[in-house]
Amino acid sequence: MASSESRLRITERNTVTCVEFIDRNILDEMNVQAISDEIGGLIDGADSPRMLISFANVDHLTSAALGALITIRNKVKGKEGELRLADIDPQIYEVFEITRLTGLFNIHDSTDDALNAFD
């Protein structure tokens, strides 16, 4: 189930690390763990990480993915960085609302909106 291949597309825009998911579904624990570890490595390597995670390609996720996002958010916060989420499908956004995670994350309609909101 685990794969050493990256499941992420990572670019730099205006000193912001932009992360996109390659998979349409972020479901199983081992895949989620690999993604979490990879993003965690990016945060570890930055002094004050500025990160944007785009869900443009994502159709489905589970609570394991939400848990990974929270871990990422806590890491970024611990390094006094900034994390923003964008391009979330309405059905997935509803999951964020149900779990009240809309209050924990800065969520934007689009990548451009999110990039403009960074300090």
């Binding site: 609570s63 929270i70 009240r100 995670l101």
Partner: peptide, 11 residues
């Protein structure tokens, strides 16, 4: 809210 687990049953 900031705990990474415990949402499955609620969903």
């Amino acid at each position: 809210l900031s705990l990474p687990s415990g949402r499955g049953l609620m969903l």
